[in-house]
Design a binder for these strands. Structure first.
Lengths: 362, 362
DNA sequence: TCCTGTGATGGGAGCGCTCCCGGGAGCGCT
DNA sequence: AGCGCTCCCGGGAGCGCTCCCATCACAGGA
């Protein structure tokens, strides 16, 4: 009845115009469905000759197994979901997410998983769509990022059985898997750097305290100041929203209180702060010196080039999927917490201190 | 045997800890699998009372149909694939892609489709993964963007039967569906604007000629100049790669030939051009005036704020999925080409010409 | 020789849905 | 009454795979 047009296929090369099934391939190779399945999935024992014969037919026909059937039968979809909740669309102007997605995508590709993206623009959309993500069998696991403190999504995930890992430190310590940059350590290092340079009136342009990055970078910064015996003058602190504009406004807010130096909690905000300083006629680093956080390309091309705490964003993305896959396979068990290290990159925004490697700064 | 634990469910609220099937729901509501399917999909005729009863059970149990089974039976997956080929990772520092993805995601959500992202980092990855995208039944259709001229991916797509739409003008006119910004018209308008301002030595910092945007913006620009009887001095033209850095380099290349004005083919490149001019000690707009393309947030916050040709990126994304869905449903038939309009936004980078609406500029 | 173990293979059952057909009930018409 | 039509509803078949068990051939040990 349904005769597979193998000869057609052969002449057409790999293009799979005709849909084949395991059964078709089996018939062509003179074996059963089961055997074909075994070679496709490279499991179970198949004799070398048969394996080769089957593989030949697969290549000739360009056969690709149907994922829906596979999902249905195996109860695994082979897709991981990346969930980015509402209210962060503004953050999308920050290159951070682009890099994160790149890392996650690359790791997914490597693992043969496909990546589905769930960007929720509003909370109602979130509520409407979220159940489907979690319990339709669409995804094998979820990566959750940009979650706010007390995120309802994380609550739902914790109640359910779907494996997930969050990017950024969750506010329920010890109960969920996550990967996060060393925000505390990085910010601390930034503070120490500024102190070492002899500054004492050091300002802080912060990230939102509704995010773990906001909380942790503040804490690290205060830690660093304390270690040097320096206090943060409250009038020298203003928080932003990760956006360029918010950095601009924050700088305007504190500038009249005469900071000698400032730590800005994100490169993108630092771009705004720099713009504000240009407007105000202040030169960086002569009049005020600046350290920021992220290490995005913009920090390298700004005027001046920024001294910044670099975090390996793509690597965070990669690790998150690797951990998720471990959870899925059962390789790793409990909640795993991974902190990826940050690194202070010294450039021009703190004076002529761009030092060759190995040289100490006073 | 498999007794659905409804009472449990009820006490737990919506959370679907236990997996139900159509059959389960049917049993609980005293109807058949088929009837439940009809109310879930809102198709076929069901009496109001029965519909209500079934809906009640669905809500109480938090039932979500299994997507794999649905795909298998219906031969539709409900997911659309967004494919971004290799070599454009650099472009990810451009906020363009973020916005595009936002638009595509929003439209997908609205349509109840899920979005899968295929970012290929290398060509080998591309070749390895692409067949799966196209012929595993994973996706119902594909949106292809950032495709270069002569993209092999588009060839594969054209040979196959999977519906697809490309974002950007494809190099095979009339044969594939696409949505594109009015690059020609926008660039033309930019040129006219510069001419109207009385400039004749107008430079051009272009996008790569391997992209349709590069080709079309150049053409529009030249059209505009021609309409004013102005020629483009070849020494005033340099092409970039959409990146900030490439804009910086391009400006350095042409500056010594003394342009009075310049059209830059993307906002991100314009940021680099601005940086070069700052370094060179040239003031914008006093010494040189600038118009760019895209209308990203950065064009508004740069110093000076840029006059730019705004293109509605998110809308392009939205339209691409709407068209794809039309193709899928069979509402629309042939290849459809949609050009979304651009708009010149006058700001500070061309002098004090920010004019109230309706006022003519000399 | 018989028995057991192991590698290689085939095929039944079933995953949870959609599609389609068939049948019963109710209606209005001849 | 009889007919045809529409509206509802139920259930069979089947989507293409995985999982599991049965089978067979062949080897080696008692």
């Amino acid at each position: 009845m349904k005769v597979p047009a193998v000869t057609n296929e052969t002449s057409k090369g790999q293009s799979a115009a005709v849909k084949h099934t395991l059964e078709d391939i089996g018939r062509l190779a003179g074996v059963s469905r089961s055997t074909v399945s075994r070679v496709v999935n490279d499991q179970g024992s198949v004799s070398p000759e048969v394996r080769e014969r089957v593989q030949g037919v697969i290549e000739k026909t360009g056969f690709i197994p149907n994922v829906a059937a596979r999902s249905l039968a195996s109860n695994r979809s082979g897709v991981i979901g990346l969930v980015i909740p509402s209210r962060v669309h503004s953050l999308f102007e920050d290159p951070y997410f682009g890099r994160l997605i790149q890392g996650i995508s690359a790791a997914s590709n490597d693992a043969g998983q496909t990546l589905s993206l769930f960007l929720f623009q509003t909370e109602s959309e979130e509520e409407r769509l979220y159940p489907r993500v979690v319990s339709s069998g669409l995804v094998d696991g979820v990566i959750l990022t940009a979650s706010r403190m007390g995120d309802p999504l994380m609550g739902t995930l914790m109640e359910g059985t779907l494996p997930f890992v969050v990017i950024g430190r969750p506010d329920v310590p010890g109960r969920v898997s996550y990967v996060d940059a060393d925000n505390v350590g990085g910010a601390r290092q930034a503070a120490l750097h500024l102190c070492e340079l002899g500054h004492t009136r050091i300002g802080y342009l912060g990230a939102p305290m509704s995010t773990s990055a906001g909380v942790d970078r503040l804490q690290g910064f205060l830690d660093g100041l304390k270690a040097c015996g320096v206090d943060l003058d409250p009038s020298l602190r203003a928080d932003g929203l990760f956006s360029e504009q918010s950095g601009y406004e924050a700088m305007h807010k504190i500038y009249s209180h005469r900071p000698e130096a400032v730590f800005v909690a994100s490169d993108t905000m630092a771009m705004g702060a720099l713009r504000a300083l240009r407007e105000l006629g202040a030169n960086v680093p002569q009049d005020i010196c600046m350290v920021s956080f992220d290490g995005l390309p913009s920090s390298e091309t700004s005027t001046p080039a920024l001294t910044t705490v670099h975090q390996p964003i793509m690597q965070s993305g990669r690790r998150s999927v690797e951990i998720l896959l471990g959870l899925l396979r059962g390789d790793v068990s409990g909640p795993v917490a991974e902190i990826v290290p940050t690194e202070l990159v010294v450039r021009d925004s703190c004076g002529s201190l761009r030092r060759p490697a190995g040289t100490e700064a006073g």
